[in-house]
Lab assay of single mutants.
Amino acid sequence: MGFKLLSKLLVYLTASIMAIASPLAFSVDSSGEYPTVSEIPVGEVRLYQIADGVWSHIATQSFDGAVYPSNGLIVRDGDELLLIDTAWGAKNTAALLAEIEKQIGLPVTRAVSTHFHDDRVGGVDVLRAAGVATYASPSTRRLAEVEGNEIPTHSLEGLSSSGDAVRFGPVELFYPGAAHSTDNLIVYVPSASVLYGGCAIYELSRTSAGNVADADLAEWPTSIERIQQHYPEAQFVIPGHGLPGGLDLLKHTTNVVKAHTNRSVVE
């Protein structure tokens, strides 16, 4: 069995187990497998329904001669939608809004960016022009300005110390501490036991640490421990890039980060 097929099978099995364990909360999309990078042309966006009122959005972007996937989250909030992270750029984010209108038909009224990198804030200006209120932590807003990236308009308070959590509509926002970046936030959907790890969490097929220019490698494993301790009931975990899975993604990420750190020390 090929690795790609095995990865998709694991996603399907995880979703099936969740649907059985929580039949009222989960209505997993039966329309197909989780979209992969090879299936999404740059400039297009796919939506994948995880649970009743919960979707991931998947886009792709060219970077350094390669094409990478990027995940975000959409959560229903009454007759409105909360968006977590842009679709990595203005063109993708405009396509995301169009796809949401086509498939869901509810307005996106608020959006949260989970850290300051372009795959999370690139497209904020498109959201703002569409009347979406954009939010991020003060740290993310400051770092985005320093980096020359787009800056969300509103500040999220109460997320300055490791372990801080605040309720934001249908989700809980959690600051686990520094990891992929010093400002990275985690998003949890309690009604569906869905954990969105953003770039602080890796997919299972990833074996290298990737972009760690703004990471705190020493603190990252401790931050992941905080996530595990705060959300032990999480059933569906979405990484910032690639295929979702279960809580095993947290341990896998820790292993990859520690291996990278150990290699760096040896070198």
Rank of each mutant, 00 (worst) to 15 (best):
P221Y: 07
V11E: 05
I17A: 10
G2Q: 15
G53R: 09
S205G: 09
A213M: 11
S27M: 10
S62N: 06
H154E: 12
T14I: 08
V189Y: 04
S38Y: 09
P152K: 01
E219F: 07
L82I: 10
I238M: 09
S113W: 02
S155N: 12
R120Q: 01
V266K: 15
H154K: 09
A200M: 07
F168N: 01
V42H: 10
S160R: 11
L96Q: 01
V126D: 04
D125V: 07
I50M: 08
Y188G: 01
L247Y: 10
A200G: 04
L9Q: 15
V124D: 04
I74Q: 01
R110P: 06
R110F: 07
D77I: 01
N71S: 14
A111Q: 08
Q228F: 08
A165P: 13
V108E: 03
Y135S: 01
V166Q: 11
D79K: 11
Q229E: 12
R120F: 01
F168K: 03
V54A: 06
G2S: 11
F26T: 11
W88K: 00
Y135E: 01
V42M: 07
H154T: 12
A179P: 04
F26I: 13
H252L: 03
S56T: 15
A218V: 12
K251H: 07
V212N: 07
A94D: 11
I100Y: 04
A234N: 02
L143G: 05
V45K: 01
I84N: 02
N255G: 14
D214C: 05
A21I: 13
H241E: 00
L10G: 12
T254N: 13
G89K: 04
S22A: 12
K4R: 05
L73P: 05
D29A: 11
L243V: 15
I58L: 15
Q229L: 14
G240Q: 03
D64Y: 13
E44P: 06
A192F: 08
V42A: 15
V132W: 01
A130N: 11
Y188K: 00
G242Q: 02
S160K: 13
A111G: 08
Q61M: 12
A200D: 02
F26D: 13
A165T: 12
Y188A: 03
K102F: 09
A21K: 15
G2C: 08
L249E: 02
S22G: 14
S27E: 09
G169N: 04
T109L: 09
N149W: 05
R142W: 10
E99S: 14
P221G: 09
S161K: 13
F116Q: 02
R206Q: 15
P221M: 09
V187S: 01
T254G: 09
V257R: 02
S205N: 11
P107M: 08
V132C: 02
G210D: 07
G197F: 02
L96E: 00
L249I: 07
G240L: 04
G43I: 03
V132T: 07
S223M: 01
L185K: 02
L10M: 10
G122E: 08
I58M: 12
A144L: 13
Q103Y: 14
L5K: 15
D164P: 07
H117M: 00
L156N: 01
M1Q: 03
G78K: 08
H230Y: 08
E80F: 07
V121A: 04
E44Y: 07
S162R: 14
T109Y: 08
T86D: 00
A259E: 11
L217C: 01
A136R: 04
I74L: 07
